[in-house]
Simulated scan of single mutants.
Amino acid sequence: MKKLLISLTAAGILAGCSASDSGNGQEGPPETEVKTEEDPVTTDYLQERFYEGMDYDAYAVEIQTWVDKGQASISDTVKIEGQEDVSADIIQVADGFLAVANDSKEITFIKPFASPEDAKEYLKKNL
């Protein structure tokens, strides 16, 4: 009898684990790829990884990982006047700058720029 109860309990636990992994329909953030000097983080690469509607927390974790590894840097963060929750990071990577705007919940805008000044000017006029 004890063996039967142990078997049923183990089966229930395994079924519960499987259901919680696939049953919610949500995927976690993609694993952050380690880039090299021969294959650096670029604006095109980031535009493939980040998208409008992406969860802000997932974005923040991913960009911080690249910053910590020295593969990207946030050269500036622009606050938008009159829009308290809206800001944009200007990210510097190997081939330029990428502006990534958010409303503190999700990514709302992504655009590459040649310089941080171009990005700031565009963001202040258009967001």
Rank of each mutant, 00 (worst) to 15 (best):
V86S: 10
F109V: 01
Q92H: 12
A94K: 10
A72N: 06
D57E: 08
A58P: 02
S87E: 11
W66E: 01
Q71A: 02
N102G: 07
I107E: 04
D85R: 13
I91G: 02
Q64L: 01
V93F: 07
W66K: 01
A88K: 02
V61T: 13
D76W: 10
T65R: 01
S104W: 10
S73A: 15
D103T: 08
S75M: 14
I107D: 00
L98D: 08
F97K: 11
Q83C: 08
I80T: 14
E62K: 08
F97V: 15
G70W: 00
K105Y: 13
F109W: 05
S115R: 10
K69G: 01
K111C: 00
V93T: 05
K111N: 08
W66D: 01
D76M: 12
A58Y: 05
A60E: 14
T65G: 01
Q83L: 13
A99L: 10
V67I: 10
K105R: 12
G82W: 12
A72T: 05
V67A: 01
I110K: 00
A88P: 06
V67C: 03
D89Q: 10
A99Y: 05
A101M: 10
G96L: 15
V86F: 12
D89A: 15
A72G: 03
A99N: 03
A72E: 06
V67D: 03
E106N: 10
V61I: 07
F109R: 00
D68N: 03
D76L: 14
E84H: 12
K105V: 07
S104F: 08
S73M: 13
